[in-house]
């Protein structure tokens, strides 16, 4: 009797302490607002006797309808940061929260578009787009309806029945985007999604993604090392430096136009674009000379 009541008390105490911890943790900067909060994300590992710091206390707050471009030289830890947000890698310190809830493992709430389309080769475009819905236990009819909406959104209606190996690089990437969007994630992570495409396809994909963002208004988080891409797409641009990976700049992109048909060519020709581009390029280049 005594033992049971004792153990219950401890458990209650423990639970209370956990609750207390949870309510105190969000802190002044995160609050309980909707969106994605990264708090003091650090990642380091030991290599022999040396500690390697990949990420150092990254803090970010992303609005639910943000378009963020994360810019940085290769090796600055931006892909690692994406893996942590996706839940593939556990940080050594800090936390990821979505609408105030801890996010520690991959879920459909956080969609990922990879550098290579990464489609399931045995499924048609429609089958790929339906995959996440099938995992969620959604019935066939409803699955079809939702999938055809997103296939239409990325303009692949004519290729819905094709297998991935019958698609071009740009089409594959669009199918991958539709597959990710179909589960209605809170945030869509994209890891240099256009870097494997040729220049013309890349530009049309950028326009596509811009338009899809405007139609869906989800949080898009795009990693790139291409300054032009960040300036054309990002409403917010974040610059990272390596060794260890830290955020050195977090700006609202003054060139961002929330219009239906932004003209990339006119934008590119403007003086503001050239100036801002120069500024960002020198920031990234600066990180290289500092580190080594």
């Amino acid at each position: 009797m005594t033992a049971t009541s004792l153990s219950t008390t401890t458990r209650d105490e423990h639970g209370a302490r956990q609750n207390e911890h949870a309510s105190s943790c969000p802190g002044p900067d995160t609050g309980s607002a909707a969106g994605i909060q990264l708090t003091d994300i650090s990642l380091s590992y030991r290599q022999g006797s040396q500690a390697v710091h990949v990420l150092d206390r990254i803090g970010l707050s992303l609005a639910p309808d943000e378009f963020v471009c994360l810019l940085g030289p290769s090796g600055c830890g931006k892909s690692t940061l994406l893996s942590i947000i996706a839940g593939y890698v556990q940080p050594s310190g800090g936390s990821v929260r979505i609408d105030g809830k801890h996010h520690t493992k991959p879920t459909p709430q956080v969609g990922v578009v990879f550098q290579h389309a990464n489609l399931f080769p045995w499924l048609s475009v429609a089958g790929n787009v339906e995959f996440g819905l099938r995992m969620a236990g959604i019935g066939r009819k409803e699955r079809r309806r939702i999938a055809s909406f997103y296939i239409g959104l990325v303009g692949l209606e004519a290729s819905a029945a094709r297998l991935p190996h019958q698609l071009s690089g740009g089409m594959k990437q669009r199918a991958a985007l539709a597959r990710t969007l179909a589960t209605e994630p809170r945030i869509v992570l994209m890891d240099e999604p256009f870097s494997a495409l040729d220049a013309l396809t890349r530009e049309s994909m950028q326009l596509h993604v811009r338009r899809i963002w405007q139609q869906t208004r989800r949080c898009f988080f795009l990693i790139t090392h291409d300054v032009d891409e960040a300036l054309l797409l990002g409403r917010r641009i974040i610059v990272m430096h390596p060794n260890p990976g830290t955020i050195v700049q977090d700006i609202r992109n003054p060139l961002f136009q929330d219009t239906d048909a932004p003209s990339f060519s006119i934008l590119r020709a403007s003086k503001d674009f050239a100036d801002l581009r120069q500024h960002l390029v020198s920031m990234i280049a600066g990180s290289g000379s500092n580190s080594r």
Partner: peptide
Amino acid sequence: PPDRIQGARSLGASRWRLYLYVILPSCL
């Protein structure tokens, strides 16, 4: 490819579903 497994997990495939719907067809 590890990306395929991770992508599938992000789409909500966990445990036995991962084996049945992703790993088995990948191995076929």
